[in-house]
């Protein structure tokens, strides 16, 4: 598979997941603001912080409209929902021959519908926009699952999706960890991940902070838990790395970073995690970042030879 195409697929996976997760995070935050307008300033500032975006300069008001503008509707920034969907489609377009037609149509239709959905959201509320984004990304993701061969291309796509999921779930949980008691409750977080019912069933309705954290961080069966997504990402890498039969350690750098993060979760236990939740979450996020750049070095080299003739 061409390196350029592999890179595109990896990023389609990431952008799709990012749009989905950002919609989830924004949705719960804005609901919280709706319930208690007094926290608007603080919640919105926390929002920017979590999403890794600079808070707009000067000390002007940071309210819901700025959050929506910059994190939901901004076409240029790849960390906004709209920007991520635009970027996913652009990547799919440049890898058009490797992306299945149905997948492309799912992404293209989403792209074509963005303006209309935004206008609708301005009438009926942003919640509908987030809902639509979640549906569209689930559709694209599902179409990919059901129409792409499980070859290298799909592994890169799935890898991107899972790395992003780890990163975004970490951000989501950070909203709780950083916000303390004023942040969203664990139930809200569970709901944002679509995990509330699975959680209630698993723990038979006994809701507690500790078990909720345990579920989102460590559950082995729930696909949005950090442990699950990390393990899946690691699995993709090891499937991609067919030469890895070494006797000593792990050759592949990306796998080392992700594996270390995964074992950190697996063998640390929930008590220890909770004692320094923001710190641990941050280290997992940085593991995702370095793993991505290690993947780039290995699979997506960008050595462009510029030819300039003698006369030029």
């Amino acid at each position: 598979m061409l390196s350029r195409i592999a890179e595109s697929l990896f990023w389609i996976g990431r952008y799709l997941e990012r749009a989905d997760d950002t919609a989830r995070i924004l949705d719960i935050y804005l609901q919280q603001v709706l319930e208690d307008a007094a926290v608007e300033q603080m919640a919105c500032r926390a929002m920017f912080d979590v999403m890794g975006r600079l808070i707009p300069e000067d000390d002007s008001e940071v309210g819901v409209s700025q959050v929506l503008q910059l994190l939901a509707y901004d076409r240029k920034a790849p960390s906004s929902i709209t920007g991520a969907l635009v970027a996913a489609r652009l990547n799919a377009r440049s890898a058009r021959d490797s992306v299945s037609s149905e997948m492309w149509e799912a992404l293209n239709l989403t792209f074509l519908d963005l303006n209309e959905q935004r206008r609708r959201a301005e009438r009926v509320g942003a919640h509908r926009f987030f809902q639509w984004v979640r549906e569209r990304s689930s559709l694209a993701s599902g179409v990919a699952d059901s129409t792409m061969s499980r070859d290298e291309g799909w592994l890169f796509f799935d890898l991107g999706r899972n790395i992003e999921r780890v990163d975004m779930t970490a951000r989501l949980i950070t909203t709780r960890a950083a916000g303390g008691s004023s942040g969203p409750s664990w139930t809200t977080l569970l709901r944002a991940c679509g995990a509330n019912e699975a959680y209630l069933r698993t723990y038979r309705g006994r809701v507690a902070d500790r078990t909720a954290a345990e579920f989102l961080l460590l559950d082995r069966l729930f696909p949005r838990s950090m442990f699950f997504a990390l393990s899946r990402a690691e699995e993709c890498i090891s499937l991609l790395d067919r030469s890895a039969q070494g006797r000593v350690g792990t050759e592949d750098a990306a796998r080392r970073y992700l594996g270390r993060a995964r074992t950190g979760l697996e063998f640390r236990g929930v008590e220890e995690m909770l004692s320094d939740l923001p710190g641990h979450l941050e280290s997992i996020q940085s593991a995702c970042a370095v793993a991505t750049s290690a993947l780039g070095t290995r699979y997506f080299p960008h050595a462009v030879i510029e030819w300039v003739g003698k006369g030029a």
Binding site: M1, L2, S3, R4, A6, E152, F156, L240, R242, I305
Partner: peptide, 17 residues
């Protein structure tokens, strides 16, 4: 164009392997 490399009068493409 950027996916291709020429040397020794042969053309090759850059792949993940």
């Amino acid at each position: 164009g950027r996916d291709l490399v020429c040397s020794n009068n042969t053309v090759r493409m850059r792949t993940t392997s």
